[in-house]
Structure formats: structure tokens, C-alpha cells
Design a protein around this nucleic acid. Structure first.
Length: 197
DNA sequence: CGAATGATATACT
DNA sequence: GTATATCATTCGA
């Protein structure tokens, strides 16, 4: 149904930072519980694998939770944070190179009613997909989807031709990674200027 | 500004 | 096996 679904080669590049930048303006799509929802990706963060203290895979840490990150690029890594929020990542790079891009925010494109329904009370205004927990909740993404292929028909990313020029986004340090020491300062966060908040 | 909320990792016995 | 601290956040007071 989607002619423009991103293919494996998009995800399997060496440089996760490049993928994080390129995901801006792409469209995150889910077909879950019989509902199709789509959102333009407006904020991403790169997690650069074993050498990145902010990453769950730092120093090669490998557990049942993080196992998807060690698989070949092009699958989802979803985990529960603060006991409440399901955070959605796109795994990149080759097998055994655990890099991933956290999807932090989006702009609604399709399935608005279902998004609002899933978000409940807090779905008002422009906060529908603002923040990684909210984005996942609106698209119905749960930890159950961790490890699923992004080339399948439940969760994927499309290129609908929204181009993002260099002056249309800003780069900054990642959010909520103070525990990562010097790595917390890495310029790995990408945010479309228009949706900065 | 602080509570919510539970899986997960790690350090024990 | 059991205990405990931590967490890539969000919402409402």
C-alpha cells in the first residue's frame, strides 16, 4: 500500500547520526489494532552504540531488552521508561553494531481521531505527539512491538517527499541523558525549527 | 515542582 | 532467588 516505504538500505548505513538527520520530515506509520496512523517525524536523537555512554548498549551491554539493537538495521526497539512511557527507536547499522534513533516527536498526518482516542485527556492542542512517550502512545506503539521489522506492515516509515533543508532544523544535545557524562553533550538531537518547543 | 508507575539491571543472599 | 535503585518522561497542581 505504501510505494514509498523506506527500505533496508536507508537504515543499514554506518552513521546513525546521519540516519537521525534524514528521518526528519519522514513519515512514521503504524497499522495497529485495525487503525492506520501516520505522523511526520519532527524530532530525533541518535544513540551511537557501544561507545556512547547514553546508549543502553554502552560498552556492549546486551540483555533481553536491548537485544533488538544488536540486530540488523530496519527494526524497532521499544522499551518502557519510567514505568509509564513506551519509547520508540529505529535500529540502524549492521548486525552486532547496536545503534538506534529515538523518535521524540511528530506532527499528525493521518488517523487523528484514533490518536486523540489513545492519548485521552491530554490530547489537546499541539501536544498530541509532543515527546517520545506521547508519540508512541498516539501511534499505539508498545514494548510488544520491540523487535518487529520496519519493512513489514505493522510499523514502518515512509518518504512522502517532505524535504528538509539544512536551515530548517537545529542540532543540540540530547534530552534526559545527564547520567552519560561527557557523552551527554554530543550534538545528536535533531529538531525541525518550525516545531521547536 | 513533584508524583506516578513498573520493567529492568545489578547487587546481593 | 530476592531486594532495591534507576530510568532516553508526562501531567497536573
Amino acid at each position: 500500500m505504501s510505494f514509498n516505504k523506506l527500505s533496508a538500505s536507508f537504515y543499514r548505513r554506518d552513521d546513525v547520526v546521519e540516519v537521525a538527520r534524514d528521518l526528519l520530515g519522514k513519515v512514521l506509520c503504524s497499522h495497529i489494532g485495525g487503525h492506520l496512523t501516520k505522523a511526520i517525524i519532527t524530532e530525533t536523537e541518535a544513540y551511537a552504540g557501544m561507545g556512547d555512554r547514553a546508549s543502553h548498549a554502552y560498552a556492549g551491554r546486551r540483555t533481553a531488552r536491548t537485544e533488538p539493537m544488536y540486530l540488523e538495521g530496519g527494526i524497532a526497539y521499544v522499551y518502557l521508561c519510567y514505568g509509564i512511557h513506551h519509547l520508540c527507536n529505529v535500529v540502524t547499522g549492521e548486525r552486532d553494531d547496536p545503534q538506534a534513533v529515538l523518535l521524540r516527536a511528530g506532527e499528525p498526518l493521518a488517523g487523528l481521531d484514533e490518536m486523540r482516542s489513545r492519548r485521552g485527556k491530554a490530547s489537546a492542542g499541539n501536544k498530541l505527539l509532543a515527546g517520545p512517550g506521547s508519540l508512541s502512545q498516539a501511534l499505539g506503539i508498545r514494548t510488544r512491538l520491540s523487535g518487529v521489522s520496519l519493512l513489514g506492515d505493522r510499523l514502518w516509515v515512509e518518504d512522502q517527499g517532505f524535504s528538509v533543508a539544512d536551515h530548517e532544523f537545529v542540532i543540540g544535545p540530547r534530552i534526559g541523558v545527564d547520567y552519560a557524562g561527557d557523552d551527554a553533550a554530543r550534538p545528536y538531537r535533531f529538531l525541525l525549527t518550525r516545531f521547536a518547543h
